[in-house]
């Protein structure tokens, strides 16, 4: 006998609720699982059942480079987001009343603002005679207009702008749960601020950091709009090349192979993050 007894109330109307499943299950199967499967299958079966598409992606040519660049820029954007968001979130988490509402309102509004529009805004700001260049010249930081568009810098700034809310929201949520009496207790016990931060605040905020980092990194990997507008022509990310191979060159097998790699990357990080977050939660409970 494996064991006896269960949680206090095992009451359900389970069987009735299971009857609701066929519709969403069918929808997901036809319009989500099958299409994804189709991408994966096409990458190995088309035009011939072998790995030639992957050989093409990973061999000479621009594709492997683009994939690496995509990971690099995703990592860069994630790092900048974390460095920027951490202090801002820590300050926001301490706020109360109106100030807190204004800050969260701004962040949420920013999250809901169209990525196309926000990237378009940066496109205008970064133009040869745009606001940023005017400012640089006025401040004497540049003698003549600098080329900002089509650089990694422009892409990174635009992506950080779009993705900051994804880092801020989990951070603020976690930091607001940190018990301020812990910090005060630490002060009373004589811990120096730096030690207090490293030993108490940082470990307690780690679940939020993990969630934010995973969210931003995964979302960055699939970015299309911002790098197209701000880096177009010179800097190419994975989603852009997939769209281009499929839409312009009609090389669907190749697009499928790149998409499959991107899919695998996303899923692996997602699963790893899930495990990581659980570890963090159990550790913080100890």
């Amino acid at each position: 006998m494996a064991g006896i007894g269960r949680a206090a109330k095992p009451w359900t109307l389970g069987r009735g609720y299971l009857l609701l499943l066929p519709l969403p299950c069918g929808f997901l199967a036809v319009f989500f699982v099958w299409p994804l499967l189709r991408v994966v299958l096409r990458s190995v079966l088309d035009p011939r059942p072998n790995f030639s598409n992957y050989a093409k992606v990973l061999g000479a040519g621009p594709y492997a480079h683009i994939l690496l660049y995509t990971i690099e820029i995703a990592a860069l954007v994630t790092a900048i987001c974390l460095l920027l968001a951490y202090p801002v979130a820590a300050l926001t988490a301490r706020m109360r009343g109106g100030a807190l509402q204004v800050m969260t309102g701004l962040i949420v509004a920013s999250l809901w603002t169209s990525a196309v529009i926000r990237s378009y805004a940066w496109l205008i700001l970064f133009q040869r005679y745009g606001v940023v260049n005017q400012a640089l010249i006025a401040l004497g930081l540049a003698g003549a207009p600098v080329r900002i568009l089509q650089t990694t810098t422009a892409v990174a700034i635009g992506m950080v702008h779009v993705l900051l809310p994804f880092m801020l929201l989990p951070l603020i949520a976690t930091m607001r749960r940190i018990d301020p009496t812990l910090l005060r207790a630490g002060r009373i016990l004589g811990a120096a601020p730096v030690r207090l931060f490293l030993r108490v605040y940082l470990p307690l905020s780690l679940p939020g950091v993990n969630a934010g980092v995973a969210l931003v990194f995964i979302t960055s990997l699939g970015f299309f709009i911002t790098p197209s507008l701000l880096g177009g022509g010179r800097t190419t990310m994975a989603a852009m090349i997939i769209e281009e191979e499929a839409d312009t060159y009609l090389d669907w097998p190749l697009a499928s192979a790149i998409a499959t790699i991107l899919l695998a990357l996303t899923v692996v990080i997602y699963l790893a993050y899930g495990r990581l977050a659980r570890v963090e939660v159990t550790r913080s409970l100890r």
Binding site: L36, G222, F224, W252, S256, L262, T266
Partner: peptide
């Protein structure tokens, strides 16, 4: 679907 790049879903849905 919320976590996946839309481009992957798009190139899967197009032929479907």
């Amino acid at each position: 679907p919320m976590m996946l790049p839309h481009v992957i879903i798009a190139i899967g849905l197009y032929p479907t």
